[in-house]
Nucleic acid binder design. Structure first.
Length: 108
DNA sequence: GGTTTGACCCGTT
DNA sequence: CAACGGGCCAAAC
């Protein structure tokens, strides 16, 4: 198994509802500070059986994926349903919703 | 085993 | 301030 790939998938799966993570952030957590595109590639080969919440993965500026990927307002609707709020220009209010993983594994 | 692919990120023009 | 290009990395073909 590729540790890099598995780590990225695990990180995405670990994003809680109401929060989002950026491509660069996930890549950095997986051990590749400059591997934002690895996350992109990982999502393209998104294993359906993992049921990854790929709609919670967004660009650093709070920008969502192109409409043709999920559908016109699919990703946005999913995020709004989880409590994510958006700015006027359609980007996520990142400071409010960006996910910061806990190193202690949630014991705190 | 080289080429292609990706929904990004940052700096420069 | 907007547009453009290069870089970066690992898996698939």
């Amino acid at each position: 198994m590729s540790a890099t790939f598995a780590t990225i998938h695990a990180l995405i799966a670990a994003i809680p509802e109401g929060h989002v993570a950026t491509y660069g952030q996930l890549a950095a957590l997986a051990g590749h500070p400059k591997g934002a595109r690895l996350v992109v590639w990982a999502l393209h080969n998104n294993p359906p059986q993992l049921l990854l919440p790929c709609h919670r993965v967004v660009a650093k500026s709070g920008r969502l994926s192109p409409a043709e990927v999920f559908g016109e307002d699919v990703q946005r609707s999913l995020l709004e349903a989880e409590g994510i709020t958006f700015r006027r220009d359609g980007t996520i209010d990142m400071p409010k919703h960006q996910w910061f993983p806990h190193a202690n594994g949630g014991t705190c």
